[in-house]
Write a protein that binds this DNA or RNA. Structure first.
Lengths: 110, 110
DNA sequence: AGATTATATAGATTACCGTCTATTTGTCAA
DNA sequence: TTGACAAATAGACGGTAATCTATATAATCT
């Protein structure tokens, strides 16, 4: 059983977490900036960020008293790819993904 | 907010449901056949199948007193694609998926 | 050092979810 | 029509998870 895809799906299975991921998709945001965007308390946001961190879905950078988060796109791509390969092996897209994951994880040709 | 990706993720956010999807990935199985494979009661399996049905992840065919289920690969591909486009727009794979979804949902050229 | 701000953690509460047993509904065969 | 089997639904129960308030930890500023 592919446990990783279950962990991944659980991490995404909440509207608040998807809103957070959308916010930090292509940029680094500090926790208080995320709090300012969503209508929730700071501990709630920290809780969700901890879950996302455990799922490997965020990258973290500490800077002074600020902690910046951004979405780990590579891991998300890898997990979506595994879902496609596991559950849609007959789809054309799966072979595309398969090739992509192969070439993007192996070292470059000389 | 993309509600569909939340519904999709919730549907996958359980090990039992992923095991069911794996079983019915490329074939039609009756409920009692699924029950026989997993170590759970028939109502539990029916409950999960209902959730998967509401998420659009299964196709259903009635035949006499048997009800056959199979994984709806097209819908799974579409949802994974939306995850990638939403959350990994900078990834190479996203443009591949984008093109794939465009061409596979529009009518064929004459 | 003390005050202030940023974030994480602890603990409580409430709602939701996975599973079970019991029952209902629907289909077929005798 | 009755009996047997397939599947869905109802209701109960225990566990998990989302949110909050309160507090702890850590860094910065005066």
């Amino acid at each position: 059983m592919d446990k990783e895809t279950v962990i991944f799906s659980k991490a995404l299975a909440d509207e608040t977490r998807q809103r957070i991921l959308k916010l930090i998709c292509c940029r680094w945001l500090a926790v208080n900036e995320i709090v300012a965007e969503l209508n929730l308390t700071q501990p709630t946001i920290s809780h969700h960020l901890a879950l996302l961190r455990e799922a490997g879905l965020v990258l973290i950078r500490q800077e002074g008293k600020f902690t910046y988060y951004t979405l780990n796109q590579a891991h998300l791509v890898s997990c979506c790819g595994r879902l496609l390969i596991n559950f849609a092996p007959q789809s054309e897209i799966s072979t595309l993904v398969q090739n992509h994951l192969d070439t993007s994880t192996s070292p470059k040709e000389p």
